[in-house]
Design a protein around this nucleic acid. Structure first.
Length: 598
RNA sequence: GCGCCUGUAGCUCAGUUGGAUAGAGCGUUGGUCUACGAAACCAAAGGCCGGAGGUUCGAAUCCUCUCAGGCGCACCA
């Protein structure tokens, strides 16, 4: 196509002139119609290095371009404008050729060349399985999944992964919360811990487990209840299963005295067993729920990786030993530290605490070691903005493990704020304050939800007002795009026998600006894909899809496909076919359906 | 205090490896269905791109300062 051809001419010219650097010649769509179909500022950009005025360069480049037979054929006018722009006006041949190419490319139009290496691992969502997914998680699910689809379509070799944070204090709190609700269902006065999980779903899980095991742990927990020290803390209601006011829960307190949060429950083997049971089983329940919710949301992971496994199978110990042996880690003050400062971190980080317990960081290192051992050469993690303080140490750690800088890429996504009657509120699983992903999907559907969540740059914090979203769901731009697809499908259904798509050369082919605009938009699709993939920016696909749909709707308004001359009809049908494919592709990349009718 | 992200139309947001007169959707006002789907199209109104300096042919985009909001700066996860 013309863009590549122009670049080749510029490259040859640069070689001829003996310039050290080959200028990159980008053809842009000028805002102003009078500036032609494409424009480039390359002469302005290289004027300084070439030490010649831009207008002189433009004159020369123009001559070189017109001397190239392919460019000459594709261009009707090639004008020098302003301080040194080159403006291209395409010939009819250029449209015909571009269209023929796109039509021939079929379903694969826009797909990048397949690359087996590097093997890429993309990790996202990765939450504690101790509560339902809320829309914040949904945002990362939508973003991560679309990114995965986009990277694959651009040619990369990608596998996706969900790291299950099923180990540690949060999970113990969760287990005790479920145990407490279970006990309460027997009338036992065992309160949900101060720092436990208050959401309604905890009761439901407890009820589910009770249905399965009956009163197996009721007695042990009753014993626990009788020995729990109450100390006037909030959240302890006599009379069992009553809701605790979330805002009274003070989870900042007592962090010092009871660092593992478990001390307020007596140390009794039977109680411990009960808590273990509830933790493990509740975790499994949540995990299954997440899996099916994500699947319903169109998000499927290649691998679910359990943190607990790292502790159980000894990998964690091994990697710490390995780091010690390599001299990357050291002991100091009864703790084991990783020398992350050697790779740009602010300070060294603890792997094994003074009390012998490994940090979350150590487990994460073991996890990333596993990724590397499984043959992934490039690791991408998507994290929420609340974890960005963790980036430097993790990058340092992976660099130490792999011996290669840059092998871990971390994408920070901004958070989702919950908006209620104009008031802002941070979501919290522990307090049970959230809009769940399932609620959002129920309110506006998967297509609108995914489009909404992925249309914004991941760098942008997102305010979500569920009422507003529900009220405006009919205005969701996703329908604008889908409508274009359905409209084309309808045209195709009406195509009479014997009429076929094709790109004949003739005076009436691509004669209107509406057709030309559509061809140009379609032609840019491969570049949009590559650009969006490189920038990890699936929202650009959403933007492109809306522009493309817009071009199509305008075209539709002005140009009939059926019932016109044979050449006009064939070329317009071709335009419809390719547009339909590209719209469908965009929607698919966003995890949104492309309906034949709606 | 230090670091990261963000400030663009009334609202929600695109556009940021420097390009010509800054865009879209929603909302507002007014128009368009006797041929393929009006979930559409057309037109109007709406902006000191947070502010101030700087870099240069040219800045929403790059640099410095500044104001405002969000998020971080653990032997928590």
């Amino acid at each position: 196509m013309i863009t590549e051809r122009v670049q080749r001419v510029v490259t040859e010219w640069a070689a001829e002139e003996g310039w050290a650097e080959t200028p990159v010649c980008r053809l842009e769509r000028p805002a102003e119609e009078a500036h032609g179909d494409y424009a480039t500022a390359v002469c302005l950009q290289m004027a300084k290095a070439a030490r010649r005025p831009p207008l002189v360069l433009a004159e020369e480049l123009r001559r070189h371009l017109l001397a190239d037979p392919e460019v000459a054929r594709a261009v009707d006018k090639l004008e020098i404008a302003g301080p040194g722009f080159l403006n291209f006006t395409l010939s009819r041949d250029a449209y015909v050729e571009a269209m023929a190419e796109m039509l021939a490319a079929g379903e694969d139009f826009g797909r990048g060349p397949e690359r087996a290496h590097p093997r890429v691992n993309l990790e996202f969502v990765s939450v504690n399985p101790n509560g339902p997914l809320h829309v914040g998680h949904g945002r990362y699910a939508a973003y991560g999944d679309s990114l995965q689809r986009l990277l694959k379509f651009s040619g990369m070799n990608v596998a996706t992964e969900f790291y299950i944070n099923d180990y540690g204090r949060q999970m113990d709190r969760f287990g005790r919360s479920v145990a407490a609700r279970y006990a309460q269902s027997f009338g036992v006065d065992l309160p949900v811990p101060n720092d436990g999980y208050q959401g309604e779903y905890v009761k439901e899980i407890a009820a589910g487990l009770r249905a399965e095991i009956g009163d197996r742990y009721a007695e042990a927990l009753e014993r626990a209840a009788s020995r729990v020290t109450v100390a006037g803390a909030p959240g302890r209601n006599a009379g069992g299963a009553r809701e605790t006011a979330p805002e009274e829960v003070l989870y900042e307190e007592e962090e010092e005295e009871t660092p593992d949060g478990l001390a307020e429950w007596p140390d009794d083997p039977a109680i411990k067993e009960a808590v273990d049971f509830f933790r493990t089983r509740a975790c499994r329940v949540m995990l299954e729920q997440m899996k099916s919710e994500l699947e319903a949301f169109g998000v499927v992971f290649d691998c679910w990786f359990s943190e607990t496994g790292l502790h159980v199978d000894g990998r964690l110990e091994r990697v710490v030993q390995r780091l010690l042996d390599a001299g990357e880690a050291y002991r100091e003050g009864d703790a084991v530290w990783l020398r992350t400062t050697s790779r740009g971190d602010d300070k060294d980080r603890v792997l094994i605490r003074r009390n012998g317990a490994p940090t979350y960081f150590a487990a994460d290192i073991a996890y990333h070691e596993s990724k590397l051992e499984r043959g992934f050469e490039h690791l991408i993690n998507i994290w929420g903005a609340d974890h960005h303080g963790y980036v430097a140490r993790m990058k340092a750690a992976v660099e130490i493990l792999s011996g290669r800088p840059g092998s871990l890429e971390i994408i920070i996504g901004q958070l989702v704020n919950l908006l209620e009657k104009g008031a802002l509120r941070q979501m919290s699983t522990r307090r049970g304050e959230m809009v769940t992903l399932a609620e959002l999907v129920r309110a506006i559907g998967v297509d609108a939800a995914r489009f909404f969540l992925v249309s914004r740059s991941q760098d942008q914090t997102l305010d979500l007002d569920l009422d507003l979203a529900r009220r405006h769901s009919q205005d969701n731009p996703v329908y604008y795009v889908q409508y274009a697809h359905a409209r084309i499908a309808s045209i195709i259904r009406n195509v009479p026998e014997g009429m076929e798509a094709g790109v004949p050369v003739g005076a009436e082919v691509f004669a209107t600006p509406y057709e030309q605009a559509l061809v140009k938009r379609l032609e840019s699709f491969p570049a949009v894909v590559q650009d969006a993939a490189e920038r990890r920016a699936p929202h650009r696909i959403a933007g492109y899809a809306q522009e493309l749909a817009g071009d199509f709707h305008v075209f539709y308004k002005h140009c009939r496909v059926i019932g016109v001359g044979p050449e006009e009809g064939a070329s317009r049908l071709a335009l419809c076919l390719v547009t339909k494919r590209v719209v469908a592709r965009c929607l698919h990349l966003l995890g949104v359906s492309a309906p034949e009718s709606m």
